[in-house]
Simulated scan of single mutants.
Amino acid sequence: MLILLPPSEGKSAAAKGDPLDLAGLAFPELAEARAEVLDALEKTSAHEDAHAILGVGASLADEIRRNLLLRDSPAAPAHAIYTGVLYDALGYRTMTAAQKRKTDAAVVVVSGLWGAIGFGDTIPAYRLSMSVDLPGIGKLTAFWRSRLASVLDARAGGSLVVDCRSSSYAAVWSPSTERTVAVNVLQERNGKRTVVSHFAKHTRGELARHLLTRRGKQPETPAHLLRAASELWTCELTPANTRRAAQLNIILAAG
């Protein structure tokens, strides 16, 4: 099983640790591309209009300045750097040692800076969204789309891919529709269903945790995933077709 996650916007900077080792990250085939994006991000972050280019408010000036020191800043495992609703719900810190090993093996984070990394890869805290048009690189979605396909196709192999990415990160790689399930979270009120972004992040984190900590075999097919998710939620599965992966809809009752 491969679980795809987006990065968090907010990140918790490491207080200590060795600096970034680009060659030590998963998917070493991406090392040259990562270095290109890293160089461009450093140059952009030194620009007086960096906050506008990177699409962040002036209140995040400290995070932009942090982008200037990424090669020398302390690095920590991705699961410690990424924070926020989804990652809080996943709760890596409270897992057992065996569950953490399973999580490190199963989770890949798709990133605007790194392309894709393993959950145990050590990285510094940074600020860069996949939606950015980065000077010297161009639109990051297009840049990474041309580089991730072969790498992630090989990583997925014949495994079930549980896609918990948000739309901009999903745009950079489309796994085989036959082996992929995209996770949607809907809220139902008075018979009407709506998409709820905040609860979606939380529920996707809870789903990832459930799949990685429950007893028994990991799901190997969309039908297996539906059964596993239905242990906690009301769920529906829309089958895949030639153009679209299967869709797991998790239905939350309105509070």
Rank of each mutant, 00 (worst) to 15 (best):
L4N: 10
E9G: 05
K11H: 08
A13M: 13
A15V: 04
L20A: 04
L22Y: 02
A26L: 05
A33V: 03
V37L: 01
D49W: 07
A50R: 02
H51N: 12
E63H: 07
N67K: 05
L68D: 02
L70R: 14
G84I: 05
Y87V: 07
G91Q: 06
T94N: 15
A98Y: 02
T103E: 11
G115E: 03
P124G: 11
L128Y: 02
S131T: 11
V132Y: 02
V132T: 15
P135N: 11
I137L: 05
T141Q: 13
W144I: 12
W144A: 05
S146Q: 15
S150C: 02
V161L: 09
V161C: 03
V161M: 07
C164E: 05
S167H: 08
S168P: 06
A171P: 03
T177N: 12
T180H: 09
T180Y: 04
A182R: 13
N190C: 02
G191S: 13
R193L: 13
V195S: 12
F199V: 03
H202V: 08
L207K: 03
H210F: 10
L211Y: 06
L212V: 10
L212N: 06
L212Y: 13
R214P: 05
T221W: 10
A228L: 05
S230L: 03
A253S: 15
